[in-house]
Simulated scan of single mutants.
Amino acid sequence: MSAATRQALRGAVQLILLMLVSWQILYWGVGDVALRSPLETIQFTAKLAGTSAFWGHLAETARAFCIALLIAIAIGLSTGFLLGLNKFASEVLEPLLIAVYSIPKITLYPILLLMFGLGIAAKIAFGAIHGIIPIALFTIMAVRNVRPVFIKTGRVMGLGPIEAIAKILVPAALPEIFAGLRIGFSLTLIGTLLGEMFASQRGIGYLLMNAIGLHNIDLIMALTFLLTLFAGTASGILLFVNRRLQAQVR
């Protein structure tokens, strides 16, 4: 194990311990009215994980999130490469992307419900629209920052657009593109959960919204703990990979 990996693990452990201590102190101050202690939450989470209903909701969320993420990556990267390589298209469409990105996405959800109904398709679409634009914008900037000599070399070698993207642009711009994918991952997860919270009968977001309505603090804390654990672990892994890619480029 390298020194950088050991340092990253040490930092992660310290952060987890700090969060647990802060959580316990906050619980002592607030009490059972709005919180549960870390130990109580972990115990209830273990009990929740032993129910088949929970795994059904988890599978629904995982399926919607994975499909939404794949769509966001495919459309985001395609749009980013297209606008990054075409100056005219970028000047016309990039301001539009930024304008759409500034719109609160929740205002678009009624339209998506009319288009896709109350099924999984609406959740997938809502999750995807959260991730597409950040991935596209990061990809645009990554392509622009590629040294022009690399692109000229590809032209001299007679590479077609797809070959140039695969063999030159992607390797050269990968660290910045991966940073966009990391942000797109988080936003797509948020969008998928929001879609489940507002108009769905299945999924982790639905369970969380139902628990809020019933003031089921145990379930709220358990689901929040699981979501935080998943998002934090995934973000940490993606951040570590991103730093390794940046180090290799340097």
Rank of each mutant, 00 (worst) to 15 (best):
M157L: 15
I135H: 03
L187C: 04
S52N: 11
G84R: 04
I120V: 15
I183G: 02
A64M: 09
I124K: 03
R182H: 07
P161K: 06
A128S: 09
I98Y: 08
I124N: 00
A74Y: 13
I135A: 00
A128I: 01
R63V: 12
M115E: 06
S78V: 10
I106K: 11
T61Q: 05
A121R: 14
R147G: 07
A89M: 10
L193C: 13
V100A: 12
G184F: 11
L181H: 04
L174A: 15
G154V: 07
M141W: 15
T153F: 11
I190F: 10
L181D: 02
L77K: 00
S102F: 07
A121H: 14
L82N: 00
I75N: 04
P134V: 04
F198C: 04
S52R: 14
I151V: 13
F198M: 12
A173E: 05
G184Y: 08
A59P: 08
G184I: 11
I103C: 02
F81I: 05
F150W: 13
A89S: 08
V92N: 02
P161N: 05
I71W: 05
G127Q: 06
E60G: 03
I162W: 13
G158F: 08
T188F: 00
I106M: 14
S102C: 10
T51N: 08
A166L: 13
S102D: 02
P148K: 12
P175D: 02
A121G: 02
I75F: 13
I162D: 00
L194R: 02
A72D: 03
E176W: 10
M115S: 09
P171C: 10
P171V: 10
I120P: 06
Y101L: 10
S78W: 07
I71N: 01
G160T: 11
S186C: 12
E94S: 11
F88D: 09
E91G: 06
L113C: 05
L70K: 05
F116R: 02
V92M: 08
A179L: 15
K87N: 13
I120S: 05
K123H: 08
A166H: 10
M115T: 13
I183S: 04
A128G: 00
N145G: 15
P110L: 01
F178V: 12
I132W: 07
H57Y: 12
L174K: 14
L159A: 14
I135Q: 02
A99N: 07
